[in-house]
Design a binder for these strands. Structure first.
Lengths: 221, 221
DNA sequence: TTGTCATCTGTCATCGACTGACATAAATTA
DNA sequence: TAATTTATGTCAGTCGATGACAGATGACAA
């Protein structure tokens, strides 16, 4: 790797570090891009050559995590049921979080709190998750041997993703995220039929299964 | 209602109309607030007295719909299972959409497309949905006779909400939203155990139900 | 009707996020 | 070292958003 690239990588890392530190210290809105750039001793214009927006810098750590997740998912054995693969990929990511140095882990969790508490960042995080979901759907579809936008795949993924959101969202104490995730898995296991994530397309709408809980239309208002 | 309030309401409506029309005609980013305000013949400053941001104006129709949804949900019979209540409330909202004049319905659906295609608006919509979910969780918790942040309630709601996102998100032809929703319901009915949304807290983690699909930990990486 | 009061609105000044254009400096390659 | 590519800084400018002040307008009581 040439000097040029190394330098760029260093600048980028320094910008993210400075940004996160400042955000944690004085809040996201209260921190100007000028201030971040000054901290790293580059011009404001340069900041925007590295990040499309202030938000992108704030969420880049999260974006990295998402990439790791996608990689872990792709690495799961092909014969694993989709939901299991998603779950194990998530456990792997959480495991990495555990393996971090305490200081760094704390910083990451504090950043999570800040995101939850900052509307603009929360919105950005949700959009990021949605982008991620698209990739998950692609992978799950592939595993199911279905077309790229299979509804069953979207169902599995969005069910899983919503668990993730509940996990991160309502947590007062970030150290409980892992516990909460496992609780939600138990809940899912108790709620879902065995093999639900391997349904044949034909199974959809079968009389004996459908309408078990949800009665049909009732010609609404 | 006094003249003052009527006038305010008229201005607000005019601003939303002008904003939506311009957004649809030339795109969200390409439309300045100045332009919207000029269209309604008020100052830019006044625009920001009605809406906290350009985004808020763009999403206000959606926000209204969410309010309707919450109201419909609250109006469902108390003995209805939570997921059924959510489903019927959704059907009611979709029914209202159907009852609209064709021109207005088209406009609304085109707005949906625009939101999906505009990152900033998509992010805003997702945040809006999350706010809404909080209210749904509160209502579902109440129905379950549980505490305000019950995990089961969050699970039910987020499962339902993720269906809504899939519904609106991946739709090429917006007129298929209703069909898609019903398909997803079938899928849910086929995937979930009867009575899953009425689980007793104690049921969580019961050996016979848990671990049916998802094997336990496997001490991850 | 009139005068007082609360409220709405426009104008102005300002900040901060973000972008295009151009010049300069640094790294890469020949 | 010379030539080329690429990253950075400077500058000017747009647009979203906010505070402050002053003038206009509807609400209400005497």
């Amino acid at each position: 790797m040439g000097l040029r690239e190394r330098k760029k990588h260093r600048t980028r890392t320094a910008l993210i570090d400075a940004a996160v530190d400042l955000f944690l210290a004085q809040g996201y809105e209260a921190t100007t891009v000028d201030r971040i750039a000054a901290e790293v001793d580059v011009s404001t214009r340069t900041f925007f050559r590295y990040f499309a927006s202030k938000e992108e810098a704030a969420l880049s750590l999260l974006a990295d995590q998402h990439e790791v997740f996608i990689a872990e998912l792709a690495a799961r054995p092909a014969d694993e049921p989709p939901f299991t693969a998603l779950t194990e990929a998530m456990r792997a990511v959480l495991g990495i979080l555990r393996g971090l140095e305490p200081a760094e882990a704390t910083r990451f969790l504090r950043l999570q709190e800040l995101i939850q508490a900052t509307p603009a960042l929360l919105a950005g995080q949700l959009r990021l998750m949605m982008d991620n979901e698209r990739q998950m759907v692609a992978e799950v579809s592939r595993r199911m041997g279905a077309g790229p936008d299979d509804l069953r795949a979207q169902f599995v993924v969005s069910l899983f993703a919503s668990m993730g959101i509940v996990c991160y969202g309502g947590c007062q104490d970030p150290r409980l995220i892992v516990q909460r995730f496992e609780d939600l898995l138990d809940l899912a296991a108790a709620s879902l039929r065995p093999g639900w994530d391997r349904l044949e397309p034909a199974a959809t709408g079968t009389p004996e299964t459908a309408a078990a809980t949800v009665p049909r239309p009732s010609p609404a208002t």
